[in-house]
Structures are given as structure tokens and as C-alpha cells.
């Protein structure tokens, strides 16, 4: 009993740690690739680890108040909570009935932490950034929600683990519901705050917005936070539409299946991340109203088309995965 718990706890720690490492690596790769596209050499891939070590070792002199201290922890805690609910290569730490709906809720937590902390710093740039972040959230949540709903209708479940199971046994979501997948990918771009939707951060206009007042340990925590977010967001897409990277059935192949699945999952999230990065490197930035209008127009329409497709397939054509 106790050993089971210990093994479980160890696995949770390992998965979370790996997720952070992957996130930091991805950030490094993104920097390198962007630099290459822009004809620069760019920093080495491991640069982010050095940065993180330096930031965490630094002493912080900026004192605001308890909200400011609390906010990065709040954000990071939210990310870790989401990671605990997201299957990574088929392994889920926490799960239950209806965790798809749960995910929709907890996806908002990190943004709230962000809003709190940067508001508390009193920097005008931070305030502008947070308002943009909240508006952006309001805009991309709309299509994303419809996408999740289409998945729920098509696979007739609100549980992520059952969704993965059904995708493995029947068909990946991207093949079954390509229209919804497209809408989800557009929403994902906003969720990751990559161009053309990097409005909240906007380094050139508002000096990285919400991040502007943070330094030292706080910035380190926020770096971990964004590393975690990258894994969360890419993995979300992979779990919803690419079967969570499960190619081998764990009940048949045992531990080997977990290992292989993890690697496949890693490859898949890398692909999703690369798509996002290339879009990021090519597009210019939207203004916030443009982004809002865009999201409530195109992806929403696409998502509704996907919803109709899912509904028609499951209700009228009787396709039951």
C-alpha cells in the first residue's frame, strides 16, 4: 500500500519534472529556429536552463506585497494542476468523470494568477498586458469550447481517458473531425500567445506586458510556468486530436507500451509546437480588437461547422466509436 503510494508519487514527480524539462527545451529550440529564420545564429538550445538556474539563484529586491509574491506560485500551481489532469503518453496522474469539462475550467487558472500578480505591481504596461490577456482568453475560449463539445458529442464521453481509449480503438480525432481540429489549432495559437496573437506579451510595445515587473526568483518561476504551459497546450491538442500519442495498448504490452507511447507523444507535441513556431515566425501581430473579432468570426464558424459534422455523424449517420 505504502510502496504503491511512493511509486505513484515518484512517477508524478518524474512526469512533472520531465514536462518542465521538455518545455524549457522547446523554448530553446523555438529561439534557435526563429533566429535561423531571421538569419541570426541564436543562443544554444540549453541556454534556457542556464537562464533559469541564474534567475532562481538570484536575490530579489523588488518588494510589492503579498499578492505579488503569491501570484507566480498561483500560476505555476495552476499549470501543474492541469498537467496532472492531462495524459502524457497515456499516463494520467489524476483523472475522473468528465475531466474534459474540468480542463476547460482549470485552463483559466494560470491566466488569473498572471492577472493578479501583474496587476499588483502597478506598472501601467502590466495592466495593459493583463487586460489584453483576459480579452484574448475570452476570444479563443469560444471556438475551443465548441471544439471540445464536438469531441464530447462524437466520442460520447466527457472523460479524457475514455476519449484516448476510443481514439486508439477507432480513429484519431484529427481524421474523424478534421474541421474541428483546424479550429482547435487556431485557438491553440491564441492560447500559447504566439504570433499573430502574442498581444498580451508584445515585447516591443509594452515591454513584455505582465512580466515587466518580475525579476529574479519570480521571473524564474514564471519561466517554469511558461515552460509548463507549452507542454500543457501542445499536449492538449495531441490528446484531443492525435490520440494522445498512444500507439501500443498498455494492457497488452505493459511498461514497454508506456515508454513507446511517451516517445510518440513527445514527437507529436514537438510537431504541434513546430507548427505554432513557424506560424509565429511568419505572421505579424494582430491588435487586440482584431484578434477578438477574428476569433469570434472565423474559428467560431469553423468550430460550429465541426460541431454540425460531429452531430450529423453521431446522431444521423449513427457513427459510434
Amino acid at each position: 500500500m505504502v510502496t504503491d503510494w511512493l511509486i505513484h508519487a515518484g512517477l508524478v514527480a518524474l512526469y512533472l519534472f520531465l514536462a518542465m524539462v521538455i518545455g524549457l527545451l522547446f523554448m530553446g529550440i523555438a529561439r534557435k529556429i526563429t533566429a535561423r529564420i531571421q538569419n541570426r545564429v541564436g543562443p544554444p538550445i540549453y541556454q534556457n536552463f542556464l537562464d533559469l538556474g541564474k534567475l532562481l539563484a538570484k536575490k530579489t529586491n523588488i518588494k510589492h506585497n503579498w499578492i505579488f509574491d503569491f501570484a507566480p506560485l498561483f500560476g505555476l500551481g495552476g499549470v501543474l494542476l492541469i498537467l496532472a489532469y492531462l495524459p502524457m503518453g497515456g499516463y494520467i496522474m489524476l483523472s475522473g468523470q468528465g475531466d474534459l469539462i474540468l480542463l476547460l475550467y482549470i485552463l483559466a487558472i494560470p491566466a488569473l494568477g498572471f492577472a493578479l500578480g501583474s496587476g499588483a505591481s502597478g506598472n501601467p504596461n502590466a495592466g495593459v498586458g493583463v487586460m489584453r490577456a483576459l480579452t484574448l482568453m475570452l476570444s479563443y475560449e469560444m471556438p475551443f469550447l465548441i471544439v471540445i463539445l464536438s469531441l464530447m458529442i462524437f466520442y460520447n464521453t466527457a472523460s479524457l481517458s475514455v476519449l484516448l481509449q476510443k481514439q486508439m480503438n477507432y480513429l484519431w480525432g484529427i481524421a474523424a473531425l478534421p474541421i474541428s481540429a483546424l479550429a482547435a489549432d487556431i485557438a491553440l495559437q491564441g492560447m500559447m500567445a504566439e504570433k499573430p496573437f502574442d498581444i498580451p506579451i508584445a515585447p516591443h510595445e509594452i515591454a513584455s506586458g505582465p512580466l515587466v515587473e518580475f525579476g529574479g526568483k519570480y521571473l524564474g518561476l514564471l519561466m517554469l510556468y511558461s515552460a509548463g504551459s507549452i507542454v500543457v497546450e501542445t499536449s492538449l491538442f495531441v490528446d484531443l486530436f492525435l490520440g494522445g500519442g498512444i500507439v501500443l495498448n498498455p494492457t497488452v504490452y505493459g511498461t514497454l507500451a508506456y515508454f513507446v507511447n511517451y516517445l510518440v507523444w513527445l514527437a507529436l507535441i514537438f510537431v504541434v509546437w513546430m507548427i505554432a513556431i513557424f506560424v509565429n515566425a511568419v505572421f505579424p501581430r494582430f491588435r487586440i480588437e482584431q484578434a477578438f473579432k477574428f476569433y469570434w468570426k472565423w474559428p467560431t464558424v469553423i468550430a460550429i461547422a465541426g460541431l454540425v459534422q460531429a452531430y450529423v455523424m453521431s446522431v444521423f449517420l449513427g457513427v459510434v466509436p
Binding site: 510589492h64 469550447l145 463539445l149 458529442i153
Partner: peptide, 28 residues
């Protein structure tokens, strides 16, 4: 299904205006 979608959309609106309120009252 349709009702759930609308319900969720309303919840998102709710999150948005509470977040705005929280941001303002904790602002420096």
C-alpha cells in the same frame, strides 16, 4: 449539447468579468 455549450460560454463570460474585477481591486 447545445444548452451545455451556451452554459459554458456564459461561464467564460463570467470568468472574464470577475477576472477584470479582481485585477482592478488588486492593482497598485
Amino acid at each position: 449539447y447545445a444548452i451545455i455549450a451556451l452554459f459554458l460560454a456564459a461561464s467564460i463570460v463570467e470568468v472574464a468579468y470577475y477576472a477584470r474585477f479582481i485585477k482592478i481591486v488588486f492593482e497598485r
